[in-house]
Nucleic acid binder design. Structure first.
Lengths: 341, 341
DNA sequence: CTGAAAGCGCTTACAG
DNA sequence: CTGAAAGCGCTTACAG
């Protein structure tokens, strides 16, 4: 007497043959359709588990003309040739990945910088995904607007910009820039520099908050202290060196990212300037490392975990044909030691 | 007289109808098959471009039973409940993403921690990809071995381990641990601590290098200075506090990651201990931020850019049925200021 | 509630 | 070099 090997079940039909039903019924059962007898459904689902069968995803996607993939595009600053080594990106990516996974969607990662919509609309990134999440707008607000017009579900993390047609999720940038600057003013700082690329909507809003705080304190902003640079470490370091070389008077710096702030502190220390005694430094984002810098960084927290969830919920809603509102998440001042106080 | 709208071409058949050939010929032409007349091919390719048509990827993948996707799995330390906020991961991810993109493969990101092979082998991550790159082995060497037995193309970034059956790409960890420790000894340090989870193959090898350097200098390692902790910032900070609280004599720390080193420096500074005057700190990885910490970090460089390329070339070769050798990349001591000298 | 049938867009062995 | 034909594994409108 020979043992027959267990049948290999690699399609709906195989399972249907075993169960003695049609593959249509198996399809319905496994997709939890209401149009199957509850018993049949339970039996079929158990059978699928027993034979370790799951629906062939490519076939299903092909049939349904969907991909069940969401692309994530990081908008790199075109003026900075650095790779995105900012941990803010990784934390955001992790939070998006978690959100997508919980809805059984895959995450397709786009790494190349984006310049032209037409290229983008035709790219694998957009064509092979049901929707796209952009992290940051860079200076490509208009490109994003045009992409919406192609009808693809897209959601953007960033700051508000005029004539926006895409769904936006972002922090309260004007508020963040304001509270960072106010905090510094409360510590008695008067010569406060601003580091960041103010052409991006996020940083533009942060800068307006900075200006508002200054005005409110009856100070006017000094162009020499406004340093328009990409938000990376290299530029922050160079900016500190330039300011110091030129002998420009300054007692604080507002940075548009934590990595800039960390690099600024390092550059200051290297030149014998004490933080926070001589110059206070405040960051933005509250990446994990902010607690572990020397000194620990005072910064504006963007709720990164929450952000990922909202971004995912928003694209998914769009994909499912729903109307979606833009969202602004609260920003919070986190006081550590880099500003004294 | 009315203008007829340009025909929408959304399949091979549509293009074939326009060209007056069969869809088989169009398929061959667009896939650059040698079995088509060169002129026909050129004409058809031009036509495809004109009508902005590209082959439906899902249909093709379904037909060919391939996905043209490579998954990337970060092996998180199961003893650390932190998200992977280590920039090393992001830099590695970027480098892998670049490599994959240049071969027209998509990157599927896996974020959930991995425990059981059976779960893993059945997971979307493995089933919906042509191959998988694991970054780090964690303590799951055996799990990885079992996964190879399922016949899937997998490549692992990590350290060498006994009875390995998977293809490995990694740095020279023993050499790295050795040169880090030797460098410290040359600076006159004698009480050198080691921070890291030595149960992972990578860190185990680094630790053996540490021990070898010590032995060679006629010092023996002191168990009180060997701190077995996950390679994250929180644990590094706590370890410094513990050592100092217990009054354990120490003049240097070898860390198994740059983020640990940065956190250690911060903890030391908070407690009034000067780096490098009182305690020297050396990191591992040479993430971008290593140049910008305070003080700038002396560390062991792992060629992250090169690593991504090798990992990608290796999985792709495996996917194409080739034999693949494991690779060891050289490690390099990068001297900055955190160890004096 | 269930099944037979059509069809999604592609590739390729086969025949010419 | 080219085409007709089969078939990948699935879903769903239609009929019962």
């Amino acid at each position: 007497m020979t043992n027959r090997p267990p049948p290999v079940v690699s399609s709906l039909q195989d399972l249907a043959d075993i169960a003695g039903v049609s593959r249509a019924t198996v399809s319905r059962a496994l997709n939890d359709s209401p149009f199957v007898n509850a018993n049949t459904k339970t039996k079929l689902q158990a059978l699928a588990r027993k034979y370790n069968y799951t629906i062939n995803r490519r076939a299903r996607e092909f049939r349904l003309r969907q991909t069940r993939v969401v692309s994530v595009v990081f908008m790199l600053d075109l003026h900075s040739d650095q790779h995105p080594s900012d941990p803010f990106f990784l934390e955001m990516l992790g939070s998006i990945a978690d959100g997508l996974a919980s809805h059984d969607y895959d995450l397709l990662l786009a790494h190349a910088p984006v310049t032209d919509v037409r290229d983008l609309a035709d790219s694998r990134i957009v064509r092979h995904a049901d929707g796209v999440i952009f992290v940051g707008q860079g200076e490509q607000h208009e490109t994003l607007n045009q992409l919406v017009d192609t009808g693809r579900p897209i959601v953007v993390w960033g700051g508000s910009a005029a004539n926006r047609r895409y769904v936006l999720v972002g922090g309260d940038n004007a508020g963040g820039g304001y509270s960072a600057t106010s905090h510094l003013l409360k510590q008695g700082r008067q010569r406060i520099a601003f580091f960041g690329n103010t052409r991006t909507p996020e940083n533009g809003a942060r800068f307006s908050g900075y200006q508002r705080a200054l005005t409110q304190a009856n100070l006017k902003s000094d162009q020499k202290l406004v340093v328009n640079i990409p938000s990376d470490m290299q530029h922050a370091q160079t900016a500190i060196e330039n300011l110091l070389n030129k002998g420009i008077d300054m007692d604080a710096v507002v940075c548009t990212s934590d990595v800039m702030a960390i690099a600024a502190i390092s550059a200051l220390a290297e030149l014998g300037v004490s933080v926070p005694d001589d110059v206070a430094v405040i960051g933005y984002d509250d990446i994990r490392m902010a607690s572990y810098s020397s000194p620990p960084l005072t910064t504006i927290r963007q709720g990164i975990q929450r952000a990922g969830g909202v971004l995912v919920d928003s694209v998914l809603a769009l994909i499912n044909g729903h109307q979606v509102e833009s969202t602004t998440l609260a920003s919070e001042l986190v006081i550590r030691r880099s500003c004294g106080g």
